[in-house]
Design a protein around this nucleic acid. Sequence first.
DNA 1: CTTCGATTCAAACATATGTTTAAATCGAAC
DNA 2: GTTCGATTTAAACATATGTTTGAATCGAAG
Lengths: 217, 217
Amino acid sequence: MKVKKPKTRQKDTRQLILDSAERLFAREGFHVTSLRAITGAAGVNLAAVNYHFGSKEALLEAVFERRLIPLNQVRRDKLEQIRDEAVEKGKRPSTKKVLQAFIEPTLRFRDSESGAKDLIALVGRSFTDPDDTVRKIFFRLIGPIFQLLFETLRDALPELPENLLYWRLHFALGALAHTMHISGCDKFLPVGFSDGCGTESLLSMLIPFVTAGMEAS
Amino acid sequence: MKVKKPKTRQKDTRQLILDSAERLFAREGFHVTSLRAITGAAGVNLAAVNYHFGSKEALLEAVFERRLIPLNQVRRDKLEQIRDEAVEKGKRPSTKKVLQAFIEPTLRFRDSESGAKDLIALVGRSFTDPDDTVRKIFFRLIGPIFQLLFETLRDALPELPENLLYWRLHFALGALAHTMHISGCDKFLPVGFSDGCGTESLLSMLIPFVTAGMEAS
DNA sequence: CTTCGATTCAAACATATGTTTAAATCGAAC
DNA sequence: GTTCGATTTAAACATATGTTTGAATCGAAG
């Protein structure tokens, strides 16, 4: 018989490792974080990582997937809903609503579970991580939802040349990634930035910013 | 005799190490790049780094300083010129001109010398580098010019609440950092992005974007 | 209680890192 | 040509890393 969880301890160990790795990968970086640091903080044996995940790289993949797959589902649903609504009404979707459909779940996700903030900060940085391992795993998970966002934005702004839309989206994602990362864990917040970095406050500032940028004449 | 007179080899070795380190730090990251990789690519002995710079950390500092100090001087001059002009005319500076004064020299710098593109990409990422060493060195060099940019922007948008200005500037810097990094070296450009990523083209897209975001109602 | 596969554990492994050392080499001033 | 300080060089050093191993331990089924 293969399965079920006859043991209570297995899930615990896997979960403890994932939590600890998520936190440390986000705060210290993937390569700088050692398996000994992860297992030490998690209170499990060093070999547990390779037993349960196979390798450090596979652990990173699991850290990403655990939260990014559900988050992507939410973002996809919202984007498709906006698309359907537009088709139904025979109108183009509003730029602001499209951006909102992507950004809101992303930033709100920070408050959903403990540790989610770290994952969001990690994702914010993975965009431009110099490490090929990190970027490859990241883009495999995030690529399709970006494609959908781009296409929905094209519906909202059909008069914009595609190349310009492409780059403006990049500017917006840069602003979002920076926000995700800098507001993700305290160590990256310079003094004076602590005010008004609650999720709702950030949303009320970021969405008008990127909307205006996207629609700039 | 195309060969330069090797009167003293010191400058040559230092220069070779700086060039090689700049390239590798930008493309692979600070911690992932080993001194052996740097000296190997530079064709100098491993111990030369510690002899000429003292440590790997001091080498990173030298890599930053070599280009960032001159670049900061240009940005400071432009910003102060805009400020003086505004005072002279008794008007507030235009938001677009302020942003332009900071962004234009930054992106144009990419084309100034070979290797500058790598440095710009490295700077773009250092904003949110998880490594304390990198961030500490970076903010020491970049902090004062950011302060000046913030103050000049406050002159341009005095009606904006300071906290909102703070965060909008952060969004703009996020867009800039992302652009600096992604357009800095080819390995970070997904397919399809290669078009229109020349400096002038980027400027003509980025400056209207961040200006509109800054001035959003 | 015994058995057996799944898990945990301490130890070892092979390799890579930044740094140091001490001898060799170079370039010019004497 | 000799001398001397500055540089280069190969080797060693101490430490850290991801991974593997084989025995110990655990939990329930027989």
